[in-house]
Nucleic acid binder design. Structure first.
Lengths: 194, 194
DNA sequence: CGATTCTTTGAAAACAGTCAATCTGTGTGG
DNA sequence: CCACACAGATTGACTGTTTTCAAAGAATCG
């Protein structure tokens, strides 16, 4: 399964075979069945994980038991609870598998060392970090400024690979809507879109 | 005005006087009167700016003329349209001064070089970047999961230095509410809070 | 196939937005 | 010093949107 990460590093970061071999040394491969958890609230997120196969989700559970999806991650995305990962504090969130999945994981300690040691890897990771930040800003803007219909529309056009793979309940949760509202919004959207 | 940045770098990043002198070489100091713009839609955000004095705001203007505040920045905060800054693409946003302000600005070219050259500076900036990302995640979570009242409450407790300095109209815009709704929410909050 | 989860629908209630008017505080010019 | 203008904040009445609760229909998994 490491081969998926190797191909990714070659394609996106132009890493050499030597560099990739070096990275391989520090990986842990983990398989998760659908619904299994990678992280639970109260644990520290020590690992940054590359999704080689499957679909993962980072979510928060509020006091009244409501789930809110913070992120999805499919093949070639990375996932961790970055707040806990960065600070070492206990996570307030959960990560679980929405499908049977395979992850290539790095302990933060090793990941940081590799980033420092391999300039091409560093460049790639920095690019991902800034993209991720920019995506957050766009999500904030859409959430505070767009109607439910527009938010849904933007989501399925921005992340078609996710929207046709996860349930509407989860998309609604990501968008900050109830499933009922999303259901009604889609009916409307179907009409106006074509 | 550079002295404000110097003190900040010493305090937050333990930079030496030599390092600070080196950084000083690349700064541009700019004063803005209230309501003046630092960046307009369609320009590229080439600079990262440290707020030495005053209060700035980054906002988006939607097609129908609505403003949405993406960020505030007061003393010791940094501001830029990071999406444009990172990618070099034209900005979709505006930055203006909410009060008479003084900025210590770095061209991205120089800023990147300094980050590379001064490890302590790099460490400080990386910490800020991750904090900024984590704050974005928390804002997303609050926006999709909390009621208007709770969002307001969290805002004023998280950013008291901002909430007692900017108008309610702007806080409403930051929270994704109309000023009327925020006004009503506050009346309720005043009752339940004490 | 049965059980479970996901999606849709309906009706009522809660919430937030719009528009228009009023109120408040601040600062300016006469 | 007062009168006035101005911007920000509040209020009321109304409209539109979203949630809630309950129930039923569709799809999926074991």
């Amino acid at each position: 399964m490491f081969e998926f990460l190797a191909a990714y590093l070659k394609k996106k970061g132009s890493l050499t075979d030597d560099e990739i071999a070096q990275i391989r040394e520090y990986t842990v491969v983990k398989s998760l069945r659908r619904k299994q958890h990678l992280l639970q609230e109260g644990e520290v997120s020590h690992y940054n994980s590359f999704v080689a196969k499957g679909c993962m989700r980072l979510y928060h559970m509020s006091a009244d038991g409501n789930e809110h999806v913070l992120r999805f991650a499919v093949e070639e995305w990375w996932i961790s609870d970055y707040e806990s990962y960065h600070t070492g504090n206990l996570s307030k969130n959960y990560i679980d598998a929405l499908e049977d999945s395979v992850l290539v994981m790095f302990h933060k300690r090793d990941f940081d060392a590799l980033v420092k040691a391999i300039p091409n890897f560093q460049k790639l990771i920095e690019k991902l970090d800034t993209r991720s930040y920019d995506a957050s800003q766009n999500r904030i803007l859409s959430t505070i400024g767009d109607s439910a219909e527009v938010r849904y529309e933007k989501f399925i056009t921005t992340y078609p690979g996710i929207s046709n793979r996860v349930s509407l309940r989860l998309i609604a949760s990501y968008l900050g809507l109830t499933r009922e509202t999303l259901s009604r919004v889609r009916r409307q959207y179907g009409k106006t879109a074509k």
